Simulated assay, not measured.
Amino acid sequence: MKSLYFSRSKRLANSFVFILPLLILYEAGIAFYGSALKNTADTITKTPLTLFGKSGSLVFNLLVIVFLLVAVFYIEKEHNLNVFLYFPMFIESVVYALFIGYVAGFVVYKVLFPYLLAMPFHWETGGGILLSVGAGVYEEIVFRLLLVSAFYLFITKVLKASKPLSAVVSIIFSALIFTIMHYIGGLSGAFTYTSFMFRMLSGIILACIFMFRGLGIAVYTHAIYNVLAVLKLFQG
């Protein structure tokens, strides 16, 4: 039973259905707040849709509907559509988010840099929660689903490296790019050694979660951690 849960919860189709509420929440919030609040990874993901001009948002929404229908069809075909699957996935994500906040936070802010305790989140609460959700969805799609997968396939298929080595290199390089991107763009923060190390460590943890537990749980872990950080649960 436990192995069945781990197998089903990791599948991309179940992950997509799982993250759909976060995607809807973020897109509705952007429509309310305005595009100036967009997450950088969101902008990267939707850049190809600018070819459609003002219809870009409509095309994106249609793609979301198509992916949802395909995901539901695939799950039904496999006879494993079970809404009760998503509750333990959410709880698992909460556990990982608390691990990042308390354990990774302790390592960076108490052990490595005990005299520099500034956390990397200083957003206004309403917009900050919206950005937290967007970061969870789009940064995991860009930096984990696309980047980790691309690195892994390139290293295993082109460079012919072993799978364990490919996984380690993919995780580290994707985490490094993920960290650097937080200092680029209009919503970027000032560089500090603490924020760099914390984001690097978080990127490694999230990449591991993606590889071993799937996209959906990685998305919720990221989003839940960000929301709790905005609410200052991990500060003090």
Rank of each mutant, 00 (worst) to 15 (best):
L131V: 02
V66K: 05
R199D: 00
R144L: 00
K163G: 05
A135E: 11
K46N: 10
L231V: 08
Q235R: 09
P114V: 06
L228T: 05
C208S: 10
Y193E: 09
S132N: 10
A207K: 01
H79Q: 14
I205V: 15
H222M: 09
L25F: 13
L206A: 01
P120R: 03
L20W: 02
K160P: 01
T221V: 06
L85A: 10
Y5K: 08
W123F: 15
N82Q: 14
G34I: 02
K163N: 12
L23V: 05
F198D: 01
G134E: 05
G136F: 14
A97I: 01
G136W: 08
M119G: 09
L81D: 09
A190M: 06
A135M: 09
L62F: 12
K38P: 02
S35T: 11
I171E: 00
V168G: 00
E76F: 10
V107Y: 09
K157T: 11
S149Q: 00
S132V: 07
G34T: 04
A167Q: 09
S9A: 15
I180T: 03
V158M: 10
V111R: 03
L85W: 08
T45G: 01
N61R: 05
Y96M: 12
F196E: 00
E27Q: 10
V108M: 02
S55C: 06
E140K: 01
I100G: 04
L20C: 02
F154Q: 03
T50G: 05
V142F: 11
K160H: 14
Y109Q: 06
P114Q: 10
V95R: 03
H79V: 07
A175I: 00
T125I: 15
